[in-house]
Amino acid sequence: MNSARTTHRFTARTTRRSAAGAAPRGPRGRLHRLLLAAAAALALALAAGAPAAAYAPVGIVHTEKVEAGPYTVTVGFSEWPLRALQSLDFTFAPEGGIAHKSGTLTIDGPGLDDEDRTSSLARHPRKLDVWGLDVQALPEAGKWDFTFALDGHAGPARGTLRDVAVLDQPGPPLAVSWTLCAIPPVGMLAYLAAGWRRNNPAAKLSTLV
């Protein structure tokens, strides 16, 4: 939020400075007009970029309820249906709020590293009144479970949201994306191989040792 305000302030200042002086004539005048045009272009670019500079609020489009003993947790999803590799925000809102409660979340699903399965429930960095996960991606399509182990005024309890469907990743197949991104290193290796073949470095190793 503050970042967006900073950008707007800078944009306004740039524009005011651009409008402040009338363009003088002659070569220096042309230079001045060029600078004014560049400043205006910069101001426009910054104004267009301003939305990208703001931290987006967490938009929940779907919720599910989980009963963990005496606690009811509302699980919020920023996208629905879920897709593999997509950037997701999750919110976990226990009834009565998160004060005086703690616990862990265990995620089970295909392709997840062991060390990433269990974590302490922490406040969502962009929605501090609930627990959550920000910009998380689930690596593979399939069925996923979310298990909550909670502790609070009514003692410890567990509950699981089972079989949340995660669909295939959006966009082209990953193999296509990886092939595209492999072009530069393959090109560099080909360039290196050509230089290697031309110069036969193995024949000159004795100059090194």
């Binding site: 987006a56 997509q86 950037s87 991606a137």
Partner: peptide, 11 residues
């Protein structure tokens, strides 16, 4: 397509 920077090792 995917949202913001969830995967460090994306293509």
């Amino acid at each position: 397509l995917y949202g913001f920077d969830a995967v460090l090792d994306s293509p």
